[in-house]
């Protein structure tokens, strides 16, 4: 598994498409209503959005992440870093922020490579 992280609009998807020579048709995009991630396509984009859907539906997020992990072995996962701001007032958004943190740590521990994008520039963290 390859994990690509970074703040919003930092060029994560552009980097993945260019580096792995893939196209937009190779991307599965999670929305904030996505309850189940389909793992047919090589790139899974918006991992953080899926977590938001789970939080809103009051699922046990980490159980769902653990169930999904074995299916992600050959995937490229893209997730936006939302961990570096003020603690949000809204309890759902606050829980979302924490669950994304925990889940992303799991992804990173299982990934053979972790790349962070900063203003379009990749840095290999693992």
């Amino acid at each position: 598994m390859k994990l690509i992280i970074g703040g919003a609009y930092q060029g994560k998807l552009d980097y993945a498409l260019s580096r792995f020579e893939l196209h937009k048709s190779d991307v599965y995009s999670c929305k904030e209503t996505t309850m189940t991630i389909h793992t047919k396509k090589p790139i899974i984009y918006g991992f953080d959005q899926w977590i938001l859907a789970l939080v809103r539906a009051e699922f046990n997020v980490q159980t769902e992440v653990d169930k999904l992990l074995p299916k992600l072995a050959d995937k490229i996962i893209i997730s936006t870093d939302i961990s570096a701001g003020v603690v949000p007032l809204d309890s759902i958004i606050r829980a979302w922020r924490e669950e994304v943190g925990r889940a992303t740590v799991k992804l990173a521990q299982n990934a053979d490579e972790v790349v962070r994008l900063f203003v379009g520039i990749p840095t290999r963290l693992k």
Partner: peptide
């Protein structure tokens, strides 16, 4: 660097970040 928080912004502010 204003891109790594969990705050959800109105459309115009989001457009500004982008």
């Amino acid at each position: 660097f204003i891109y790594a928080d969990a705050q959800r912004y109105d459309a115009l502010t989001e457009r500004y970040r982008e």
